[in-house]
Design a protein around this nucleic acid. Structure first.
Length: 497
RNA sequence: GGGCCGUUAACUCAGUCGGUAGAGUAUCUGCCUUUUAAGCAGAGAGUCGCGCGUUCGAGCCGCGCACGGCCCA
């Protein structure tokens, strides 16, 4: 047997003793009638009903702290809804039960039955008439006062983080509310929620490196999707005029405070809408979601006050480079001159990058970090927007926007390219880009072209990063704070502890 | 990929000039029937992330590696 810490050994000894005395350590016959939050509601709303012979509650939870006296003890326990204090007295529960209680530990699950009373210091407390062990813990929880702080441990053993840190619980409760609010917002507008393949023979819809996997029976390689876009638009071709999907995308790239290899995206498509319609819809959505989650349409994010209300600023991409990025307007169409600017600003440009890509790379460094309040940047070059509809006035630009908040890209939307011939040419150009060295350029998807050839209505679509939106609404600096189990390298250190 | 910082008891952290490893909480024993980080008395608990080196002697100095955090690309 591997070497145990002293505390664990002591607990194992107790467990052996309890088993030998015939105690069932993991029963499942205790019927809970009241959650802790229900009990607290009664206390707040009708304390008069809790008199001398007041209501008896039956509840359960995990013991988080114990103050032991000789023949009585206070203990604090939590369920998923809240925390409550109980008082266990030897003369109430009997000698045998109290002897069992003496062998129990912080971290054990208990069931308690009894009425409430008010302690000397005024705290409503459950007076145990019945007291049971519901599940025995072997490993000690982190200390109650400082809790669990080590970020590595918090991420690797999220369950401990959730037990010990109420803030963490609240982040993930808010995350759930974000998703619920978005779903409700779209369902109210007659969108249909759908699920499209996570495994795709041709990974499309975004510029990113995919994860590769293999289907044995079919004998083919498949790719975890980098975006659902091309499948959702096939559904628009199929006559589902308003569709959305909230699900995971996978991108085979680095892990950082802003990137997790799997992340959650909302994508939605609306027939007969334009990218301008979607900008207005996005404003409403964010306002509604923020109110649903935080009760207000403005947020504090990392010390910045950000206001989601009203109409957000719309700035054409080239204008933003000029006015915010400080680039001379007369060189915005001059690739060579922009390359010089890029070199002076230490922006990495690949030789094969065409003008549009040079522009967006400059934007990423010179403009994006400065866009704190919600801002739509509009009008992206065709060569970086292979799935977007061309502008009728400027055919080299597309009807596309990206949304930036707190210096980060939060959403990307456009009027969809539904001309199959133009789409085919765009794919061919992407294939050429790939051959010229752009490993993330799109692949030809002949099946998608064929779908467009049957005819897709004029449509606009958008993707919104749920993790990033949740970061904003929970004031989280790192994406790992809003993903329950962020990806990390195997440690090799804690494996055998 | 680069830079900086971190890794010491279950948790949170100290550890001076290189000289026997420390605290609080938690744990264990005893006392205690209204505590709020309860109290009092006592006790136990360590692969100092891993490896190599320097040294009479390394938690501490050097080199390498692993994992994590922050920043940069």
């Amino acid at each position: 047997m591997e070497k145990q810490s002293e505390i664990i050994e002591q607990r194992r000894k107790k467990i052996t003793a309890l088993r030998e005395s015939g105690e069932v350590l993991f029963p499942n016959d205790f019927k809970v009638l009241n959650s802790i939050v229900e009990i607290k509601d009664v206390v707040e709303k009708s304390p008069e009903s809790l008199g001398e012979k007041g209501a008896v509650f039956i509840t359960a939870g995990r013991m988080m702290a114990i103050n032991r006296f000789g023949k009585s003890s206070f203990l604090r326990f939590s369920d998923g809804t809240g925390q409550l204090q109980a008082y266990v007295r030897m003369d109430k529960v009997g000698d045998e039960v109290y002897a069992l209680f003496k062998k129990m530990d912080i971290g054990d699950f208990i069931g308690v039955k009894g009425p409430l009373f008010k302690t000397r210091t005024g705290e409503w407390t459950l007076l145990a008439e019945d007291f049971r062990l519901l599940s025995k813990s072997i490993r000690p929880l982190p200390e109650k006062f400082h809790g669990l702080k080590d970020p590595e441990k918090r991420y690797r053993q999220r369950y401990l983080d959730l037990i010990m840190n109420q803030d963490t619980r609240e982040i993930f409760i808010k995350r759930s509310k974000v998703v619920q609010a978005i779903r409700g917002f779209l369902l109210n507008r007659n969108y249909l929620e759908v699920e499209t393949p996570m495994m795709q023979p041709i990974p499309g819809g975004a510029e990113a490196a995919p994860f590769k996997t293999h289907h044995n029976a079919l004998g083919i390689d498949l790719f975890l999707r980098i975006a659902p876009e091309l499948y959702l638009k096939r559904l628009v071709v199929g006559g589902f005029d308003r569709v959305f999907e909230i699900n995971r995308n996978f991108r085979n790239e680095g892990v950082s405070a802003r990137h997790n290899p799997e992340f959650t995206m909302l994508e939605f498509y609306q027939a007969y809408a334009t990218y301008e319609d979607l900008m207005r819809l996005t404003e409403k959505m964010f306002q509604e979601v923020a109110i649903a989650v935080n009760g207000t349409s403005s947020i504090e994010y990392q010390g910045e006050h950000i206001d989601f209300s009203g109409k957000w600023e719309r700035i054409p991409l080239l204008t933003s480079l000029q006015k915010i990025g400080g680039i001379e307007p007369d060189i915005l169409d001059n690739r060579e001159a922009l390359l010089e600017v890029a070199a002076s600003k230490k922006v990495k440009i690949t030789k094969s990058d065409r003008l549009g890509k040079v522009i967006t790379k400059l934007f990423d460094v010179l403009v994006e970090p400065k866009l704190i309040q919600p801002t739509f940047i509009t009008g992206y070059p065709v060569e970086v927007s292979p799935l977007s509809r061309r502008s009728d006035k400027e055919p080299e630009m597309t009807e596309r926007f990206e949304l930036f908040i707190a210096g980060r890209e939060i959403a990307n939307g456009f009027s969809e390219l539904n001309d199959p011939e133009d789409q085919k040419e765009r794919f061919l150009q992407q294939v050429a880009d790939r051959e010229a060295g752009d490993a993330e350029a799109h692949l030809m998807d002949q099946d998608y072209i064929e779908a467009l050839e049957y005819g897709m209505p004029p449509t606009a679509g958008e993707g919104i990063g749920i993790d990033r939106l949740t970061m904003l609404l929970t004031d989280s600096a790192s994406i790992r704070e809003v993903i329950l189990f962020p990806h990390m390298k195997p440690s090799g250190r804690n494996e055998h502890k």
